Amino acid sequence: MPEAAVKNKRRPLWYNLSLFNLPVPGLVSIMHRISGAALFLSLPWLLYLFDASLDSPERYAQAQQQLSHPLAKLVLFGLIWGYAHHFSAGIRHLLLDVHVGIDLHSARGSARAVLGVGVALALLFGWVLLW
């Protein structure tokens, strides 16, 4: 390539890869992956609690005592949000796979809707289940 063409070609000086610079659909996609990983990694603890709740009255009381701790409630609330977001974003991704809402305006709108629905469902189910 001639040197004049190389000098005239504008290249970025640095790439800003922070999450705050992503468009909303990209943020929803990354949060979909994070919520899926968090749900998968929490399965052993949730299965332990489920097993304890079905085993005997003593282990049920132990699981109930463990879940009454504020930190456990916070973790469960995060998992409820993760499930609500992962479910909503999964439906969005399935619709995008069949070419529904792939134009830019619709994709941004559906991404915002996923964020809103995930938070709304987390607040609703979190309040009902945890308090």
Rank of each mutant, 00 (worst) to 15 (best):
A89Y: 08
L76S: 12
L39T: 13
Y60W: 04
H99G: 00
A107N: 02
S88T: 12
A122P: 01
H85M: 01
A120L: 10
P25R: 01
L95W: 03
A120H: 07
R33Y: 12
D97F: 01
R112T: 12
R112S: 13
G82N: 10
Y83P: 04
V128H: 05
A4L: 09
K7A: 15
K9N: 08
L121A: 11
A72T: 07
Y15E: 11
M1F: 12
V119D: 08
A84Q: 07
A120C: 08
H93N: 09
A107G: 00
H86S: 08
A122H: 04
R33G: 13
N8D: 06
M31F: 06
V98G: 00
Q64M: 09
E3F: 12
L96A: 04
N8F: 05
G26I: 04
I34G: 06
Q62S: 09
Q65Y: 09
L43N: 08
N21C: 13
A4N: 13
R33L: 14
L123A: 14
W131F: 11
L74Y: 13
R59G: 00
L27D: 02
L13C: 13
K73R: 10
A122Y: 06
L39I: 15
L95M: 07
Y83C: 09
F50E: 03
F20M: 11
Q65E: 12
G101D: 00
L22E: 04
Y15S: 13
S56G: 03
L124V: 07
V117R: 11
S53W: 10
P57C: 03
H93F: 09
S106G: 01
A122Q: 04
A111E: 10
L41P: 12
Q66P: 10
L17H: 02
S53R: 12
L124G: 05
M1H: 13
R112H: 14
W14L: 13
W131T: 10
W131G: 12
A107R: 02
H85V: 01
Y83E: 05
F125R: 02
S42L: 03
L79T: 01
H86V: 01
V128M: 05
P12N: 05
V28F: 04
G78E: 04
D97M: 02
P70L: 00
Y60P: 00
Y15K: 14
A113M: 14
G116P: 03
V119G: 05
A52N: 09
K73I: 03
L13H: 14
L54R: 10
P12W: 03
V117F: 10
F77T: 01
V114H: 01
G118N: 02
W81K: 07
L41D: 08
L95G: 00
R11P: 00
V100T: 06
R59D: 06
F20A: 10
L74H: 09
L129T: 06
E58Q: 14
F77K: 03
A37K: 13
V119E: 07
L49C: 12
H85Y: 06
G118M: 04
P25E: 02
L95K: 02
S56C: 02
K9T: 14
A120E: 05
S53K: 10
A4Q: 14
W127D: 05
A120V: 06
L39V: 14
I34N: 11
L95R: 04
I80E: 02
D51Q: 14
K7Q: 15
A61V: 06
A5C: 07
L95Q: 02
K73T: 05
V117W: 08
V100K: 00
L129Q: 09
A52V: 07
W131M: 11
Q66G: 11
G26E: 11
E58L: 14
L74I: 08
